[in-house]
Amino acid sequence: MILTPERQQALADYLLALADDELILAHRNSEWTGHGPILEEDIAFTNIALDEMGHAKIWYGLVHKLTGDDPDRLVFFRDAADYRNVQMVELPKGDWAFSLLRQYLFDTAETARLPYLAQSSYPPIAAAAAKIRPEEIYHLRHTQSWVKRLGLGTDESNRRMQNGLNDLWPYAQQMFAPLPGEDLLAAAGIVGAGTAVHAAWLNVVTQHLTDSGLQIPANDQPPTNGRANHTSHLDALLADMQLVARLDPKAKW
């Protein structure tokens, strides 16, 4: 596999999207630290947030390899318009059903995508996927069991889960919208084709959500497919996340 300039650009964009998704979701999940509905979930969500932060760091490292961009600059000194995460991960944390379901939809998407990345013809991606996959087993095992427990739990837990799903379902589809140049990467065996990943994901989540007493919403059109488009929630999140770094950009940690 030869990294032509076109492929290199597309690959850097693709990796940045992966990294930004992980980072922003990690930040949202970290908002549960100290506020979890029960101590066990406080611990679990904090751990999952830290794992996703670690995965973001790996993907930013690969972006750095291609573009020379400093990961700390990417995280702390980009404005919302330059972030490439999907809108689903920037939405406020909502109630715990919403956050849990969002993490489940994200874990299943990663689980659908990682087998392709593990086979990537670009060795650094294959190595990154090999590192991330075993950690994701623990995430999915946790979130899928809670989806079932709450979906089949009480009327109240089912109602909250269904509300969360109704809100999240259209947004979730954006995770699979093709990025510019993604077809070039898929043709070169660098990443999996978005349509194949989407189909694999749909299959898994439709089955599990249905088994959990939830109905798949009819609306599956995401508000946007462009990763440069964000809600105002991202501005608020970044203001919080970047505040300290921007107060003194030259400070050493």
Partner: peptide
């Protein structure tokens, strides 16, 4: 197993 996560990333309860 009570929790697949624990006080550090590498521990379960």
């Amino acid at each position: 197993l009570k929790n697949g996560f624990g006080p550090t990333l590498c521990r379960m309860i």
